[in-house]
Design a binder for these strands. Structure first.
Length: 638
RNA sequence: GCCCGGGUGGCUCAGCUGGUAGAGCGUUGCCUUGGUAAGGCAGAGAUCGCGUGUUCAAAUCUCGCCCCGGGCUCCA
């Protein structure tokens, strides 16, 4: 041991073999040495499990793992390096800007600056140009350290960095330098700025320091970076394609819904949008009835007293709308539960009724901040497919399992991929540890018994109970909570709910709030994007377009359309004096499932010619056969 | 709510540094009766989000307000 050469360290290579390298070697050096090749190996290193910087020294007996620029880890490092390059460019162009934080994020990176005047989209071009210069120079990034004191001195004019430094427990602060620019940073980074080959600044945005609206608004620049220009181009292309299926755009084109200045956050559903809504609602009612739910309806406006009792007056007042009736204060319901409580208390309940599943398509109003409204995804009035389930504690697991199965059943019908999160007891919570424990375990058991993957958000539950959330993703990758199963220990207390148990004594029931679709508005919004407006038969606002070739075929077309309508299909006819091509094109743009073209040939043979929106044309189809096929398709919900 | 961008005929958009508006699509009429993604011609249609100020003159410049879009979670 004493004889060991202090100028050498041993590293373990990916294949398990050992190699001695200079004590000052970096991961990059090792990569070169084992012939990984700079371009090919690309090259971020791992030392003893932790991703470390390429420029960092290799520690004794380190294990080296070479990963390529294509790997997610390396991409993250690349983006983080790009954010440093951007910060350097910004500081050069805007010397007064104070850098704050600039991490890599899911699809790119950002950097927040404190500036006198926020950046504008025009600034982005200048910044991009400056970044290109820095990248062209291929400046090495070097890691170095400072003591906390030195670091604070260095950032004496930057309260944000100082705050970060003070929050860190490390005794020394790590920094990265590229040319004249240096930044407090844990790393790792790519060896030099030249690695940032394909990047693009995407947008500017305001963002509060540390995400807290009480803090100062900073100016944020979002960008993205990839290992190659080709990948960047692909990404940009995907974004453009995704925008085409934006439900707001399609909602207008397909005449599904609209929003008006006169009613911000309160969408109007047009005839075609209503068809989708009604079909889903019909299906929803059928399924719920089959699964042992009863369906009720409670009022939209209820007296203030009720909201005081429920606690909404104290905790949710800012999000509620109010009105006055006969000089008495009333509120428009933001949630359905208090009304549900009144229903429950209408009579005395026995444990024999449990689990008691009471569903309601409840229209609720919530005053959301104007800035967060978004199409059908975030609105101020929406219809929840709500249900309150009352039961004994012993029934929690089975009942939650039923709800999870129900959610899964619905989402599968629509072909949704979804993500599940479980939120547990927060610091401030009501209810005994005992009931929390029972309830949380029941939720976990229910999920585990189905073998479902889920994420646990420790301490993220509501103060009145733990919950499971179901999240769906929109076309731009933003995720939206739709379904939720929520235990509530509060309402039964507040409203003194009871049931008579087996022992003939009064007990407190356990209550679940749950929604499957979440809200019809959001669910339909996501549905529009999911199908890109091309709805399956059972939901499609217009299922068949009848297209006569010339005026003289109108009578036959009317006859065919009549038969289809009699069979319950949603049919439109195009009697305009336009060519078939034109009519096909218009039907196609409206994403109508079937077009049927009728002319001399069809009349002669008493048949139809059909065309799907995918462009598949079939001649000589008998009407009965066509009807049967379409009926099957509606039935299959595919 | 806060920061940035936007609001022009039904729709999508053009109108630079001020002189009361353009295109395409759609719509209406006429011609065309045409077989699977746009036939031709003609016409109608906007006090340029709302209000205010500056000016001889404002869609274009001030200020205020409303609405829409993006962002405000992802820790150096």
């Amino acid at each position: 041991m004493m004889s060991e050469n202090v100028n050498e360290v041993t590293v373990t290579l990916p294949d398990g073999s050992k190699m001695k390298v200079d004590a000052c070697a970096t991961v990059l050096d090792v990569a070169k040495k084992i012939g990984a090749g700079l371009a090919k190996a690309a090259i971020a290193g791992k030392i003893d499990g932790a991703v470390c910087d390429l420029c960092a020294e290799i520690k004794k007996d380190a294990k080296v793992e070479i990963i390529t620029l294509k790997s997610p880890e390396a991409l993250e490092i690349l983006r983080h390096t790009a954010s440093h390059v951007m910060a350097e460019a910004v500081l050069k162009l805007f010397p007064g800007a104070r850098p704050t934080i600039g991490p890599a994020i899911e699809n790119g990176f950002y950097y927040d600056f404190d500036v006198k005047t926020p950046f504008t989209p025009e600034d982005l071009e200048k910044i991009e140009a400056e970044m290109k210069k820095i990248i062209k120079k291929d400046v090495p990034l070097e890691r170095f350290e400072m003591s906390k004191k030195e670091a604070l001195e260095h950032y004496k004019d930057n309260a944000y960095k100082s705050e970060l430094i003070c929050d860190l427990s490390d005794s020394t602060m790590s920094f990265y330098r590229q040319g004249d620019f240096m930044d407090l940073c844990r790393g790792p980074h790519l060896p030099s700025t030249g690695y940032v080959k394909a990047f693009k600044l995407m947008k500017v945005a305001g963002a509060y320091w540390r995400g807290d609206e009480k803090n100062k608004m900073l100016s944020r620049i979002y960008g993205t970076a990839f290992a190659s220009q080709k990948e960047l181009d692909t990404y940009v292309h995907i974004l453009e394609e995704a925008e085409k299926r934006d439900h707001r755009k399609l909602g207008k084109q397909l005449e599904l819904f609209s929003v008006h200045d006169e009613a911000p956050g309160f969408p109007f559903f047009h005839a075609k949008g209503c068809i989708i809504w009604n079909e889903i609602e019909k299906f929803w009612r059928e399924v719920h009835t089959k699964r042992g739910y009863v369906i009720v309806k409670t009022p939209l406006i209820l007296n203030k007293k009720l909201w005081v009792q429920s606690g909404h007056w104290d905790h949710y007042k800012d999000n509620m709308y109010f009105t006055e009736i006969d000089e008495d204060e009333y509120a428009v319901k933001p949630m359905n539960c208090p009304g549900g409580m009144l229903l429950y208390k209408e009579k005395i309940h026995s444990y024999r009724e449990f689990p008691m599943r009471v569903a309601e398509l409840g229209c609720v109003h919530r005053h959301e901040l104007s800035g967060v409204l978004a199409g059908l995804f975030r609105v101020r009035c929406f219809t929840q497919d709500d249900a309150h389930i009352f039961m004994m504690p012993s029934q929690i697991k089975d009942e939650v399992t039923c709800v999870i199965e129900l959610v899964d059943y619905f989402y599968k019908i629509f072909g949704y991929e979804y993500r599940i999160e479980l939120s547990t007891k927060p610091e401030k919570a009501m209810g005994s540890d005992d009931i929390w424990e029972t309830a949380t375990e029941a939720l976990k058991d229910a999920l585990d018994s189905k073998g479902t993957q889920y994420k646990i958000n420790e301490g993220d539950g509501a103060f009145y109970g733990p919950k499971i959330d179901f999240h769906l993703t929109d076309c731009l990758g933003r995720s939206w909570q739709c379904g939720t199963v929520q235990l509530d220990f509060l309402m039964p207390e507040r409203f003194d709910l009871t049931y008579v148990g087996e022992d003939n004594e009064k007990h407190r029931p356990v209550m679940i709030h749950r929604v499957v679709l979440g809200s019809f508005e959001r669910f339909i919004g996501i549905l529009i994007e999911h199908y890109a407006g091309a709805f399956p038969m059972w939901l499609s606002p217009v299922q068949v377009k009848v297209i006569p070739v010339a005026d003289r075929h109108k009578e036959y077309a009317e006859k065919i359309a009549g038969v289809l309508k009699d069979n319950g299909f949603r049919v439109e006819s195009d009697y305009r004096q336009e060519k078939v091509e034109h009519k096909i094109r218009d039907a196609q743009l409206m994403k109508i499932n079937y077009m049927i073209v009728l002319g001399d040939k069809e009349i002669e043979k008493d048949c139809i010619t059909s065309r799907t929106r995918e462009g598949k044309v079939r001649f000589n189809v008998g009407l009965d056969e066509f009807v049967k096929e379409l009926q099957d398709e509606v039935e299959a919900k595919k």
